[in-house]
Write a protein that binds this DNA or RNA. Structure first.
Lengths: 216, 216
DNA sequence: GGATGTGAAGTAGTTCACAGCC
DNA sequence: GGCTGTGAACTACTTCACATCC
């Protein structure tokens, strides 16, 4: 399922280039997964392909968009506007995929009241705007209290950049992005090559094997 | 294996607090994993625990440190010093775990020559400093050429923040951090709850179930 | 011919359940 | 009693291989 956005991105570039069919070996090569895996993944969306001729890119894009809820708009708040929070808010990758920034929050009086990207930063101790996803860029020590506040405000999905596992009620989704862990995993693979403990295969988003270069 | 750094972090806070034993249910609760999983994970490091009494935190920390290669120093270069690259370089989480910043690179003449964190940004078209890990914060359109250059310079581990799957030779590890994919996955879980396509379970770093609050 | 879609096989990772030990 | 360490069961995911269809 984490691969669908990757397929989507590839299919959209195909559409932009005016190519209207793609087959599973090609899509797999570009996404870094085996052809059979591509077919299995896409088969969950229904029988979209044409045997012998691959997939129509428009049909694919439409189906993936639907299952990802890409047509809906998601209201996102960002809490913690230090270096990382500001970088995210200013990043163009952030707002693709139907996300809409509706609130910025921080605890520091030096930041509260400043404007970033047409939004004014509010005090995190005040009320939070209604939203569906919260992005936490707060220090680890604050992660749990902020999480509790976010949950209390009715948000059920959290993207946590703090290096801290947080506790949430059942029904609330949390995903973690932790740069230092990523570096440690890479460091492990450098020393232990294809050793025990899951050596060899490297993957975060389903990208697991070296991809041969593609000219196109 | 991605869980070892999490265990390590928890164990280190335990040590800092002066508590010298921890058992698998507690460690599991704090890390967001089942006790049996904790024991299975730790058993790969050898029989470290004491039956009936849990694990000695010093022994645990030492063993995890060893298997993570945490005692070694890893030379890291960062390529692309836009908002995200600068935020990472300035972040304190970045340099824990034995990583040492040895080079900064960008393509823009406006950035080349400026100093960040006592390091001067060099031209990415010049020679790259010898390093073991490269962090890419470049636009997606540049990701593959920069990757090729990084690989050619002898680096075998890449952390890629660009929303672009890159192709590398066998033996080179790539990990991806893609914020927009994370948001899309969260959005999917919001609409599809515990549906098909891997619904229900939310996990990035092995954190998969709600953790009951812990007072300590 | 050539690619899809899918049962079946294979693989990886998790959890159970309990013997062994403190 | 309580917790570790681990064979065995289970679950999820990936890949094979081939019948099916364009």
């Amino acid at each position: 399922m984490a691969r669908l956005p990757i397929y989507q991105r590839i299919v959209l570039t195909w559409i932009r280039r005016g190519i209207n069919r793609i087959d599973s070996p090609t899509l797999g090569r570009l996404a870094g997964v085996a052809p059979a895996t591509v077919r299995r993944d896409l088969s969950y969306l229904g029988p979209l392909g044409t045997r012998g001729a691959g997939y129509d890119v428009d049909v694919l894009a439409k189906q993936i968009e639907e299952v990802l809820g890409h047509d809906r708009i998601y209201d996102v708040i960002v809490i913690g506007l230090g270096n990382l929070g500001r970088a995210l808010v200013n990043s163009e990758n952030f707002l693709i995929s139907g996300a809409r920034l509706v609130g910025l929050y921080d605890a520091s009086s030096a930041v509260i009241g400043t404007s970033i990207n047409d939004l004014t930063v509010s005090d995190v101790n005040g009320e939070l705007a209604p939203a569906t996803i919260a992005v936490l860029c707060v220090p680890a020590s604050e992660a749990q209290v902020v999480t509790d506040k976010v949950v209390a405000s009715g948000i059920h999905a959290i993207l946590n950049f703090a290096p801290q596992v947080v506790s949430v009620p059942i029904g609330t989704a949390v995903r973690y992005v932790d740069v230092s862990i990523e570096l440690q995993i890479l460091a492990y693979h450098l020393t232990n090559g294809t050793g025990p403990l899951g050596g060899g295969v490297i993957h975060t988003l389903g990208i697991s094997r070296p991809v041969p270069p593609l000219s196109a």
